[in-house]
Design a protein around this nucleic acid. Structure first.
Lengths: 342, 342
DNA sequence: TTTAGCACTCAAGAGAGGAGAGTGCTAACA
DNA sequence: TGTTAGCACTCTCCTCTCTTGAGTGCTAAA
């Protein structure tokens, strides 16, 4: 059976109506609301065909039809027109994000907040990962009780710190010397550029407290490698509760449990292709708890390199057209904003 | 009317049964389950009295009774016996928290997780605030694009950083000198100890770039004062969804919206007395969205000074006896753990 | 090929009736 | 005087039935 143009228009009308109302759509509704120039009986016949093709389904005999996942897929791939976004909104977002925020973390948080507010869904953003973490500065400081704090600053402005205990008391001066030597050898290098040779040189310069030095270096390597996987930020989680498909607390719980796990979010964001935009509908998502959800993700780039992903999570009955436009728009804005921050 | 001992025992039985089952409790149930040595008719008479006194109420004529807020209050104040906690559980918690965790933030997070798991309610913990933030170290570092990162380490091991732009390019060396001078003057002092005189001295030492210095100092003051108010950590938020009183998504949303606001959490935790344990039942809570909840909070201390608060949020139909024991226990464990960390 | 007409289906809502839990009251009992 | 058994009464909840309305598929005519 062919999917001719009339079938397409009926399918589109049905999907748009269902997205707008949430109720199964009948042939009469389509005939009345969307002037297709044919009677409801004709639409009925076409709908029977569309059902046979697997694009729509009936919750029960005497209800209207609702789109199947396959129907949404066809709509997204072939029928959907991107919704143009209001210039005023665009300007507002650009204004807020590009010029006002200076710190990466605050920027991402604000972005996720805006994205969720403007879509009314949940925003997920993976923080930018510039590939190599280049060491900018190491500093060892002693605190009370033999505790020592190791502060590490990366080239992109990221700051990490770790505390370590060490049985022996250290002289402030020793720590300063150590910091100095570590900086001299390691500054400007990424983890990959550290070679065994470097440490040999460091060892040679200060052969006291080798055990301590080892511990510090281990921690350093740790931080430098961990930073490789970026944090994920969520915005507007509670928007999910506005969706009628999540009136049921069990479902909410199932989904929220997934969203609480950073591992899941990362997986969900990183399974798409690293360029372009992905729409994952219902059970195309890897997790059972997301089978009623659709996820739109896209990578954002700086200098042509994809450095992170952002997306929007909503019910399968989602405003795809608006959401896709929004996600696309936000990738460009975030990229711009990051360029300024960097 | 007197609240004699029999009334007390009936009230207690009713509350315990209602907490356990969630269903309104009838006179027959009490007579059957709790051997009070009197018939259901007698209990019925007593219950009529208890209702008149305002301790219990009827959802409708032919249902059993449920405790009123006043009833819970009387129970908590006069009847409740603290539930003894299993030694094995105590040992486990002590083991996990006191020796294994080194960083304050990780410690608080783990504590909130454990507290929520062991109570099945939501844990709220205000991070310790030792009163004065004493500066341990300041470091200025230049990044790309005229950006400068200011790293601040406090005496308690807390590390903060801020990024700032400044139109002029800085020499690495200048920043080092500046860091050095700042450290020499400010290290070991708390914000309160900074006096105008100090800055005069600093200005005298480097009269170049006074504007930049001002900006740095402003940022420093900012961080030092902000640290005064502690962060709040939540654990087990989703436990709320297990409660039958939160089957309704609207209610869930209302509560979650409150919990998302740090301001609210802080207020809720800090309105109690700074020592001892507080139980706030239902509408005794300051927020409308918490009128179905009870909150048990207690301050935890180090060296005799209350430095933070922790608590448990559950439905008014809460296992008060177990939860109070648990909150009390956790204040001591957290205090112990913090002593080790500090 | 399209459309009007019609019989049919099914969910959802309204209403009726019964079961069950619980109450308050009364009168008898210790 | 306090306690208890008995009983009528109340109200929710569940089930069953009936009705309504939206929507369908099929058929025959245009």
């Amino acid at each position: 059976m062919q999917v001719d143009e009339r079938k397409q228009r009926i399918l589109e009308a049905l999907i748009l109506d269902y997205i707008a109302t949430g109720d199964p759509v009948g042939s009469r509704t389509i005939a009345r609301k969307y002037k297709l120039g044919v009677s409801s009986a004709t639409i009925r016949n076409e709908m029977a065909d569309l059902e046979e093709l697997g694009f729509i389904e009936q919750p029960h005999t005497s209800a209207g039809r609702i789109p199947s996942e396959q129907g949404y897929r066809y709509y997204v791939d072939c029928l959907m027109e991107l919704k143009p976004l209001a210039d005023s909104m665009k300007r507002y977002v650009q204004d807020v994000l590009v010029d006002r925020v200076r710190e990466t973390e605050a920027l991402i948080q604000l972005t996720s907040k805006l994205l969720s507010q403007l879509t009314n869904y949940t925003a997920i953003i993976m923080a930018p990962n510039y590939g190599k973490n280049i060491l900018r500065h190491v500093q060892l400081l002693s605190l009370e009780n033999n505790r020592i704090v190791l502060v590490i600053v990366l080239d992109n402005g990221h700051v990490e710190h770790r505390t370590l205990d060490f049985p022996t008391q250290f002289e402030e001066k020793d720590l300063q010397t150590l910091s100095y030597i570590l900086n001299r050898h390691l500054r400007g290098l990424s983890l990959e550029q550290w070679k065994a040779g470097i440490f040999q040189e460091i060892y040679n310069e200060l052969d006291y407290q080798k055990r301590f030095l080892n511990q510090v270096i281990e921690l350093l390597e740790n931080v430098m490698s961990v930073e490789h996987e970026s944090k994920v930020y969520l915005g507007g989680t509670l928007n999910i509760l506005n969706q009628p498909e999540f009136r049921n607390v069990e479902k909410v719980k199932e989904l929220f449990e997934l969203l609480e796990e950073e591992r899941v979010l990362k997986e969900v964001l990183s399974t798409g292709p690293s360029v372009g935009l992905t729409v994952r509908i219902g059970s195309e998502n890897p997790y059972e708890g997301m089978k009623n959800c659709s996820l739109i993700t896209a990578a954002y780039e700086v200098d042509g390199n994809p450095i992170g992903t952002l997306g929007v999570l909503g019910p399968t009955r989602m405003e795809y057209s608006k959401s896709v436009s929004m996600v696309e728009f936000f990738t460009t804005v975030l990229a711009d904003a990051l360029k300024k921050v960097k």
